[in-house]
């Protein structure tokens, strides 16, 4: 510990050359991490990716066409605490160049047509308010309509966004209801869980994959570890709420390293779609 503090104080270290890995707590060459798609070369910790990076790493080059990119948040509750929601939105927009925490569209994955979406953990912790819920719902509906497999990559430590109150909460219901219709139409939803995905996002669309995969060592769960610790007044077990923990308890199909994700998703989709690469049409079961 002492050594590390001294290390950080060295003045000749150029800024941005090293970064500290939250997984192993060691300093890593940023270039090494960059070359491995933001994965720690020492401990395989997967750093958070922005939506831009995710699209670049996962989808075929230049295949992504964004949809509904102009949807923007408002402040329906007039939510003001220490900081006003309006100001927080503006700051996040300026920092990320995004309107809100979700990007959706169509793309190709090893030549296969897909509907794609992801939350951006760098925009208000990937939390879901009206815009995120609406875009997820629209891409689910689009995938259902066009018989496209849907891949959605969640990185939503913020869960349902507090600043939009019950409107955020109901986005859980909205996205899940859209997935119910997709399910009834025989659709394919591959949910990819990344660090961290919690609360209202984890307890709705992110948990509803027909196939669910996660990146290694991601924090995934319903309640935040601090809330649980405060409630039960005890320490949490080692590895609690990680991808490995969820796999062990039967909630994931597999854990896939970032570098292998594209090939694995393409392989999985190949088992489920028809020869034209689309969802095989099925008569709707039941009403709705």
């Amino acid at each position: 510990m002492f050594k590390r503090i001294r290390f950080r104080k060295k003045k000749e270290m150029p800024p941005g050359l090293f970064l500290r890995c939250p997984g192993c707590a060691n300093m890593q060459y940023k270039q090494d991490v960059d070359e491995r798609q933001q994965v720690c070369p020492e401990c395989n910790f997967h750093f958070e990716l922005s939506s831009r990076e995710r699209i670049a790493h996962l989808l075929d080059e230049d295949s992504f066409t964004e949809m509904w990119g102009d949807l923007a948040p408002t402040d329906p509750l007039n939510f003001k605490a220490k900081k006003a929601y309006k100001d927080r939105i503006e700051a996040s927009q300026a920092a990320t160049g995004l309107k809100d925490a979700c990007v959706v569209g169509t793309a190709e994955l090893e030549g296969k047509p897909v509907a794609f979406g992801c939350t951006d953990p760098k925009f208000m912790r990937g939390s879901m308010g009206s815009v995120v819920g609406e875009k997820i719902t629209r891409i689910i509906e689009h995938a259902t309509e066009e018989r496209l497999p849907l891949i959605f990559v969640s990185g939503s430590g913020g869960g349902a966004r507090m600043d939009e109150g019950a409107l955020s909460l109901m986005q859980m219901a909205k996205t899940s209801a859209a997935l119910a219709r997709m399910d009834q139409a025989g659709g394919l939803f591959v949910s990819v869980l990344t660090n961290p995905t919690m609360g209202g996002c984890m307890a709705s669309f992110a948990a509803l994959g027909d196939i669910t995969v996660a990146e290694p060592k991601a924090l995934l769960g319903f309640a935040g570890p601090r809330v649980i610790r405060d409630t039960i007044k005890a320490d949490l077990p080692e590895g609690f709420q990680t991808s490995e923990f969820l796999l062990e308890h039967g909630f994931l199909d597999m854990i896939v390293n970032r570098g292998e994700l594209r090939a694995k998703l393409a392989e999985l989709i190949g088992f489920c779609v028809g020869e034209d690469g689309k969802i095989v049409k099925k008569p709707r079961r039941g009403a709705g």
Binding site: A180, A203, S204, A223
Partner: peptide, 28 residues
Amino acid sequence: GAFPGVGAEERGQAFIIARNLLEMAKLT
């Protein structure tokens, strides 16, 4: 609120709640 505890997470609190949202939407 749904219980925030170790057992609840081990048994998939988020997954079960999500499944309820989807299945309730399907009820006729």
